[in-house]
Amino acid sequence: MTTVLSGGADPLISLTGVSKRFPNGTLALDNVSMTVPKGQLLSLIGLSGSGKSTLMRHLNGLHKPTAGTVKVFGVEVSSASSKQLRDVRRNVGFVFQQFGLVGRATCLENVLSGALGRLRGPRYGVWSYPRTLRREAFDHLERVGLAPQAYQRADTLSGGQMQRVAIARTIMQQPQLLLADEPVASLDPESSAQVLELLLKVATEDKMTVIVTLHQVELALGWAHRIVGLRDGRVVLDQDARGLSQTDVMEVYRRVDRESELLATPSTPAAAPITERQRA
């Protein structure tokens, strides 16, 4: 499973000059470069449409860049063979805002599908997975507190429970990198706090590297090592979280807002990215 990993010194992820223009002409990423070392907890922030999801999707090859290179575990995802891509994906857990569960299947089956990358051949139904994997899936459901729902259909669960099943599916995958795209955006405040806490607890226990997009800045600040801000597909903030207070980040959000107003006025020259200004 670790064959695709290169030596420990290299960063887990490195993006160089990545741009993405969709067929309809939208420039969703504009010359993005960044590296992420192993074990880091990184939070992506930015207004809606700033390119956060697009960036995440480049990291496991769901999107291909129009320019630049995306390297994950030392593999160049943008030009990887489908075999290599599967190897990368197996090591990248992806938690989606809309959970991505199969509603008509039981929770146990949904969790088991996280093991497909490790198995050969198609599987259908619980019985088609080896018993050891079934036991493992049960353990993971227990870990997210949903073992009692193992044989319940996924579409009978609440939103928070569904996301916990999705998390169990991701643990089943045993990934080294966890990407979570607004994992709690469709949940009520109480379950979002619970689910996020669970996600991060599991990720740190299993020593995963994490990239998460969040709309709740205070949550992001609470646990992230590093905050990266995107605007119109460009990196406008890349900072250690420790130096930032909550008001700082709120200030950052507001500045990003004001910047957009400034940019809208043609006569004003484009404001420099915040990081550069702060370094200066």
Binding site: R86, G93, F96, G100, V102, L116, G121, P122, R123, Q173
Partner: peptide
């Protein structure tokens, strides 16, 4: 969505179809 999610776990094409599409279309 579920198809994308299971593809993201590194499942192959037919594995994904069987795990996500087939349960949806069977009824």
């Amino acid at each position: 969505m579920s198809r994308e999610a299971v593809t993201s776990t590194g499942a192959g094409k037919w594995q994904t179809v069987l795990a996500t599409l087939v349960p949806q279309v069977t009824p």
